[in-house]
Design a protein around this nucleic acid. Structure first.
Length: 294
DNA sequence: GCTCCGTGGAGGTTCGTTTC
DNA sequence: GAAACGAACCTCCACGGAGC
């Protein structure tokens, strides 16, 4: 059970749409959310943005509109350019998609190359495992070589970083569905599934899906199969979702969990026809989501 | 020039009916 | 009963006009 935390958000320009500094009580870490347009002017004003640290670049893929994140690291340079300068260099390369950057550093610039490599590698892994964003990194960041004492210290730093980044509205490290997912089996022999009361089912001739309602929407679980073709009455948005999540589908079977805004959108995606998610998603006992919510 | 408000369109969601 | 369909309903957003 996580303990309560105090998170402080400081609006550097006095507006919620501008750069924001995030800090937690008794933590030396500092997390900055910086809109791309504020990056250059801010880097000149704030020396702490030239510290060693790790950064995240957020934006969306042009062709599919899929949300993307890049995890990188930067060190102080002789010319005074640190993280902010490094991020600015991405404005003209393949990462120019980004609209916002999150910069993670410390108040005392105490991290060296080894520490930030460890942070970068672990934050990259956490983002990969959470599966909320498409990862823009082409290579696996090096984990570095830290002592076990330093590792324990950095692991705690990472936990605080996840809280700070989440508080800034980017749930890049929070898994879509934090409930352990049992393997997909035939319902008649599935004893594990029966114990998991939050799992809902939607089955048809050419599809068999499992899902769960979460605080963010409705998650269709990995290994669910969806209908290959769409019915004529199917909302056109279904095809765009199939295209958007093409890299999460293998022969119309989900290779990872996918989050939708509502049970109905998820039901349309699965069935390939117009569907009411509240009626179609049912518990193992056959109770519809609508009745479960009563 | 700015803000507020109403309108209309697009997209998403839900529901009732029909067909097999 | 499941699948399919069409339509009503809802929400969001862009746009334009009125008022200050």
């Amino acid at each position: 059970m996580p303990t309560p935390k105090t998170v402080q958000l400081f609006l550097l320009n006095g507006t919620p749409t501008g750069p924001i500094k995030c800090s937690l009580s008794n933590w030396t870490g500092r997390v900055f959310l910086v809109p791309r347009t504020n990056l250059k002017p801010l880097s000149k004003q704030r020396p702490d943005l030239s510290h060693n640290g790790v950064y995240l670049l957020f934006g969306s893929e042009e062709t599919t509109d899929r949300e993307m994140v890049y995890v990188g690291q930067a060190r102080s340079r002789a010319n005074g350019n640190g993280i902010a300068g490094r991020i600015d260099e991405h404005s003209t390369d393949r990462l120019s998609y980004f609209t916002h950057a999150i910069i993670i550093t410390t108040t005392d610039d105490s991290f060296g190359p080894t520490e930030i490599s460890y942070l970068e590698n672990n934050l990259w892994k956490a983002a990969l495992e959470a599966e909320r964003y498409k990862i823009a990194n082409n290579n696996t960041p090096s984990p570095g070589n830290v002592t076990e004492e330093k590792q324990a210290e950095l692991d705690e730093f990472i936990e605080y970083t996840k809280i700070a980044v989440g508080s800034l509205g980017y749930k890049v490290f929070q898994p879509l569905d934090e409930t352990p997912t049992p393997p997909l089996r035939d319902d008649t022999s599935n004893t594990v599934e029966k114990e998991n009361t939050s799992t809902l089912f939607f089955k048809g001739q050419n599809f068999h899906a499992r899902g769960r309602q979460t605080a963010d929407g409705f998650v269709i679980l990995k290994d669910s199969t969806i209908r290959a073709e769409s019915a004529p009455s199917c909302p056109p948005s279904r095809e765009s979702y199939v295209e958007k999540f093409a890299d999460s589908l293998e022969d119309f079977r989900l290779t990872k969990d996918i989050l939708f805004r509502s049970p109905s959108t998820a039901a349309v995606f699965v069935s390939g026809r117009s569907s009411n998610g509240l009626k179609e998603w049912k518990s193992f006992e056959g109770v519809s989501l609508k009745d479960l919510e009563l």
